[in-house]
Simulated scan of single mutants.
Amino acid sequence: MPRSMNTGNGAIVSRIAERRHAMPVALARIADLVISHPTTPAELTITELAERSGSSPASVTRFCRSLGFDGYTQFRVAIATELGHAAAEHAWLTDIGAEFEPTDSPEKILRTLLNVHVSGLETTREGIDLDAVGRAARAITASTHVDIYGLGGSAGIAQEFQRRMHRIGISAHAWSDVHDGLASAVLQSESSVAIGVSSTGQTNETVQMLAQAGAVGALTVAITHDDESWIADIADVSITTAAPVGYLRPDDMSVKHSQLFVIDLLYLLIAQQMFDPATRRLAATATAVSGHRRPRKLNSRSPEARSELQEEAS
C-alpha cells in the first residue's frame, strides 16, 4: 500500500527542507531543485527531473522513498494536490478575503457581513464632505443635462442614479460603454453636469469620459473611495465613499452600498431644491405604472378577507 504524509499547505516542501541537510549529495540536489521550484515535479517526468537536478532516475526514486512515498508517481500526485490546495487558498484570500473561512457557519458569515456593511456606511458618513455634496446637488438641479459614467459594478450605480433623476424630471443618461459615453460627453456644455462613478478612481474609460465632459465645460463630479485617485484629481467636485475592506475583493458589495448611500443623499438634496415639481412628477410616474401592480393580497385570516369569502360563497 502507498505510504502517505500530511499534504497540508507547504507540508511536503517543508518536510524536504527539514531533511535536506541529512541527504546524500545526489538527493540534496533534487531537494534544492524542489524547494526552489515546487511545481517542478508536477511538470517534469522522472527522467527530466533527474537531468534538471544533475542526478539519476534511481536517485529521484530514492529521494521520493526517503519522504515516505512508494515512488515518483505518488510523490508527483501529492505535490500536485498540495499545490492545488495552495492555489485554492490563495484564490480565496484574493477574491473573498481573510475575514471569511470556507468552513464558517451561515450565522458567522451573516454577522461578519452585517458588521462590514454597517462599517462601510458609517465610514462614508463620517468622511463625506457635505459642502461638496451640496455643490453637486445644486449644480444638478440647475443643469440642462446630467451624464453619468460607470463601468462594471459602477455601471449599476450610474443606472440607478439616472433612474432617480429621470423620475423627478432631470434629463440624465447613464453610460457604461466608453464609445457611447465619449460621444455624449463631447456634446455637453457649461450647463451640464457629468458624474464619474469609480470605486478605485483608476478606471481608465470612466476617467476618459469624465475628462472629455469637463473639457467642453461641464461641471465634473467624481464618486470614489480614493480622494487622491486619478478621477478625483480631474473632477471639479469629489465625493468620497468608504474604501473596500478585506473581503469580496475586488468587487466589494459594501462599497456599492456606500455608493448607493451617496446617490441617495444627492437625490434627496436635489428633490428638496425642486420640491413642487419633483413631487408632482413622482406622483405622475407612480400613477403611470400603477396599473401594472397587483393589488395587495388580503390576509385570509383577517375579518375583511373572511367577509369577502363569505359573500363570494353566498
Score class of each variant (00 low, 15 high):
Val25His: 05
Trp92Gln: 02
Thr81Met: 07
Arg20Gly: 03
Ile128Leu: 15
Ala139Tyr: 01
Gly10Met: 12
Ile35Ser: 02
Ala137Gln: 09
Ser14Asp: 15
Leu130Arg: 03
Thr47Glu: 08
Ala42His: 03
Gly68His: 05
Ala91Trp: 06
Arg76His: 03
Ala17Tyr: 06
Ala98Gly: 10
Ser14Thr: 15
Gly97Gln: 05
Glu107Lys: 06
Glu51His: 07
Ser66Trp: 00
Ile35Lys: 01
Ala28Glu: 12
Leu130Phe: 14
Met5Cys: 11
Leu27Thr: 09
Pro41Asn: 02
Thr123Lys: 13
Val118Glu: 12
Ala78Pro: 01
Glu122Ala: 14
Arg62Cys: 01
Arg20Ile: 06
Ile35Trp: 02
Ser119Glu: 12
Glu82Ser: 06
Gly10Ala: 09
Thr73Leu: 10
Gly127Leu: 03
Ala58Asn: 05
Ile79Leu: 13
Phe69Met: 04
Arg20Glu: 13
Ser36Ile: 01
Leu110Met: 11
His85Ala: 12
Ala98His: 10
Arg125Gly: 09
Ala58Gln: 08
Gly68Gln: 04
Thr94Cys: 09
Val34Trp: 02
Lys108Trp: 05
Cys64Leu: 09
Gly71Phe: 09
Leu49Trp: 06
Val25Tyr: 02
Thr45Gln: 01
Glu122Tyr: 08
Gly127Asp: 08
Val25Thr: 05
Leu27Asn: 13
Arg19Val: 01
Gly120Ala: 15
Arg15Asn: 09
Asn115Glu: 14
